[in-house]
Amino acid sequence: MQVATRAIVFSSLKYGDTSLIVKAFTQSDGLKSYLLKGVLSSKRGKLKTAYFQPLTQLELIANHKNKGTLETIKEAKVIYPYKTLHTHVVKNSIVLFLAEMLGSSIQEEEKDESLYNYLEYSLNWMDDHENIANFHILFLLNLTKYLGFYPDTSYQKEAYFDLLEGNFSIRPSLNPIIQGSTLDCFRQFLGINFDALLTIKMNKTNRQELLQAVILYFGLHLHGFRKPRSLAVLNAVFD
């Protein structure tokens, strides 16, 4: 079936000498994988390699068989040309990290328009703003709303956050926890939007520790989740 849909690229992998396998989250059908035959060797085709950089927003004309196999793309065009995401060093590092996190976290081949709208809005916000040092942490925490394991914000004044149970607790358990100054930082992110990022103050150590905790939180709640390899690059950028 031929469909016209918006899509956000998660990854592209070279296949053979001239082709790409592209994983993208579509507005119409959720996660899709596409085989782009010969795209690396064609200079005059409708599909350009540059279209398939991580988190690029596209308008696609695609053929979806919806049988769990690789789909095909007939036409593609960029619908939101980023001004800064792929050229600003820090933002590009965040993009690579978030693309890897999304690719490992979202596996459903079904329509989820609210999730698609969240991704689209978030990326456009980051492209338009400069204060983005803590953007990726808030992005991931708010993403858990759509994945089904947003932290239970009851009893926020308690001294521990249990990462396996997803709630605050009076005393530590045998599960991984957040505590101390990292927990103080964690509380600042709960229930806020991106415009409130200016109010959050964190040092480098707290940021790295909190991000490690958030990644562990994803790993505890998502089957098959893989720790992102791009984390080391992101930490180096903020070092």
Results as ranks from 00 to 15, higher is better:
171 R>M: 13
23 K>R: 12
91 K>Q: 10
6 R>L: 11
221 H>F: 10
42 S>W: 03
147 L>R: 01
83 K>L: 13
106 I>W: 06
68 G>T: 07
197 L>E: 08
46 K>C: 01
138 L>G: 06
96 L>N: 13
171 R>Y: 13
19 S>D: 12
131 N>S: 13
214 V>I: 15
107 Q>T: 15
111 K>M: 08
46 K>Y: 04
22 V>D: 01
122 S>P: 08
130 E>Q: 14
120 E>Y: 15
56 T>K: 14
17 D>F: 09
32 K>L: 11
168 F>W: 05
61 I>G: 00
147 L>A: 05
48 K>P: 01
41 S>H: 11
164 L>E: 14
110 E>H: 09
20 L>A: 06
232 A>L: 09
150 Y>W: 05
222 L>W: 02
78 V>E: 13
14 K>T: 13
86 H>D: 09
162 D>P: 05
198 L>S: 14
135 F>V: 09
225 F>S: 06
74 K>I: 15
179 Q>D: 10
71 E>N: 01
174 L>W: 01
168 F>E: 04
51 Y>E: 02
15 Y>E: 06
95 V>Y: 02
222 L>T: 04
208 Q>D: 11
122 S>D: 12
64 H>F: 14
104 S>Q: 14
66 N>C: 06
40 L>P: 00
35 L>Q: 01
208 Q>E: 11
233 V>N: 14
64 H>E: 03
90 V>M: 07
131 N>K: 07
19 S>W: 11
57 Q>G: 00
128 D>W: 00
41 S>R: 14
194 F>W: 12
55 L>Q: 10
108 E>I: 06
201 K>L: 05
17 D>K: 12
234 L>M: 14
25 F>I: 02
141 L>P: 01
152 D>N: 15
11 S>D: 05
